[in-house]
Design a protein around this nucleic acid. Structure first.
Lengths: 343, 343
DNA sequence: CATGCTTCTGTGAGCGTTCACAGTAGAGAA
DNA sequence: TTCTCTACTGTGAACGCTCACAGAAGCATG
């Protein structure tokens, strides 16, 4: 009887041990391990039994050495630390990607590139082929890291629409424009007409599209667009707070506020409370994302739900397809209006 | 002139190419790569130049195959997803560990084991030797994963004091008891005497120790301990809210509240606001952690700062030491009282 | 001169896989 | 029968690195 898997830091069994145990050759074991094509049912069974008995687990390094693949992928975040700390969206995305990859038995390497030095180091690491592909989360516009990786031919899928749109860019995004339209229509349906907006950064497509949706619906509804009702932030809580203060000063008659992220909306709520405006009585507030920030806010935020679970799943699917040789592809997923107490 | 590193997904240079380029043997290049002992300055220089010229990056798989090390470590979180989504502490820790490892050029694998199946899969992955060690974050008491890894001889460092205290357990924790003492002393110094507490889960040392500190200081100060002033939560925001409601019902004369985590304190503030209690006028509120939740709260929370940056740095240091053959070691770091508007 | 020591260098072997290829057995067609 | 085709199996040769060892060179010591 052979050694079982439990305990012991001794030499783990190799494919050779399994082959001997099963009475077949290395090649056959390898074939079973990789899909079982051209293997007789009898051999198949014998090998599986031997694997179970010996507690064999493939040595990924040996495999990678010959296949050239690393069978691991990187999750790259090119945002400053502080953003990572405060924004729950990253966690949802990170968790979703980790789990989607887990079903393929692919480990995820976390890469945080907040500073210039980190970016350099990580780019080097990736282009050296230590990961097969990269899931990139970045709200920056023409992120130099993305360009560099693309130039190096590294399979890459971005979260959110990238700026350049240079045809062969793979990305998954929620339908920002449509989501914004839904929210503004909702605010209009409540009878609000002086609807303010704290948009996202306008050097990102996400920021631009949500603002565009806002303007479109107002125009379609015959409501005049007042630039004093529009400011932009950077998705951080603090910028939502500051932006709302500016709006209150510029347009004191504001009766609704569409904020381009839940986190910024939290800041907006704080600013409104300080200014003595009641939500939703005086001002209806709508957010975007449906992150945990939305339910935690007081009052709970009406918001536009981004389907993060589907986004992460699709990112992984597109990346694996791209690694498998398919062309880069883009995907835009529908959003959903979630009504809560703030409107 | 040889090919430069930029661009191209063609065969990357090997140690052999570098050797030829530098006019030395593979062995010498390898020695330079691994610390440069027993290498003449001239050879050293030639090799480094060749590495720069060829853009050589070591193939980690080939290295790992022979050394038996993977040169990567796992960050394992055995908490349910929801906790990961809402608690900013995880991000701070995760980010800190990633960066501490980056200085050693060691990638971090993210492992989320919220469910039973995931735990099984991940345990198997780890014991197969795919990582050299594990940084474990878990608030559970006798976490079975921890025991299993320990039994398998996997180097392991936990964040927070583990329950069993079975001598040979490596961990890094903040001084929970001392931090709690500071906070309660602070509340007493404000003249408060009916001090409530929402503790952490009492099957975790962290939860127990903070409660112990609270009771100690009260006793030392001659303030009677009233069990109606004590409830326990699970560190989630919702449990802080529910716990505070219970306290308000049981002890309406409460004039201060010590909550064992900032996230729970956010919930507590919501409950107090709903009950019409002003903070800090009617009730002084103190949190624990000094996470981003503390500054985001309204009013900003007085809290006990856990030195997360040092905690993550020490976790990594202890883990690498343990991988290097040293004995497991424990480390308790001091906390600090941070005064803000809530007291 | 031989001997030993230290510092440095090159070489073969081997880590555990996969892959290409060669080969065997059995079924069906000519 | 013989040939061809398909289904399956085994075998060497890599993959790119490190490690152990052997050897060379330089220098001091006997």
């Amino acid at each position: 009887m052979t050694m079982h898997s439990t305990g012991g830091r001794r030499k783990p069994p190799t494919i050779h041990d399994v082959a001997r145990e099963a009475g077949v050759s290395r090649g056959t074991v390898s074939r079973v391990l990789n899909g079982g094509h051209y293997v007789s049912p009898a051999a198949q069974e014998a090998v599986n039994a031997a694997i179970r008995r010996t507690g064999y687990v493939v040595n990924r390094h040996a495999r990678s050495l010959i296949t050239g693949r690393s069978d691991s992928i990187g999750f790259l975040l090119t945002e400053p630390q502080e953003r990572f700390f405060e924004d729950p969206n990253f966690n949802v995305l990170l968790s979703g990607c980790t789990q989607a990859l887990a079903t393929h038995d692919i480990p995820l390497l976390l890469m945080l590139a907040g500073t210039r030095d980190e970016r350099r180091r990580i780019t080097r690491y990736i282009t050296a082929g230590h990961v097969d592909g990269v899931l990139l989360v970045s709200s920056h516009s023409g992120d130099p890291v993305a360009e560099e990786l693309r130039a190096a031919g590294v399979p890459l899928v971005q979260c959110g629409k990238p700026m350049g749109l240079s045809s062969k860019v793979s990305y998954v995004a929620a339908d920002d424009r449509d989501g914004a339209r839904d929210m503004v229509r909702h605010l209009l349906s409540l009878g609000r007409r002086r609807i303010g907006m704290v948009s996202g950064p306008l050097d990102t497509p996400g920021g631009v599209d949500r603002l565009a949706g806002y303007k479109e619906v107002l125009t379609e509804s015959g409501v005049e667009i007042d630039e004093r009702l529009i400011v932009s932030g950077d998705y951080s809580r603090a910028s939502g707070e500051a932006g709302t203060e500016r709006l209150l000063a510029q347009a004191p008659d504001m009766d609704a506020l569409f904020v381009a992220s839940d986190l910024m909306a939290q800041g907006a709520l704080a600013a409104l409370r300080r200014a003595g405006r009641r939500v939703p009585e005086d001002v209806s507030v709508g957010g975007f994302d449906d992150s945990s920030a939305a339910t935690e806010a007081t009052p709970a935020l009406t918001t536009i739900r981004q389907p993060y679970d589907r986004i992460s799943a699709e990112m992984v699917r597109l990346l694996l397809a791209q690694i498998g040789g398919e062309d880069p592809a883009a995907m835009i997923l529908p959003t959903e209006l979630v009504k809560r107490r703030s409107t």
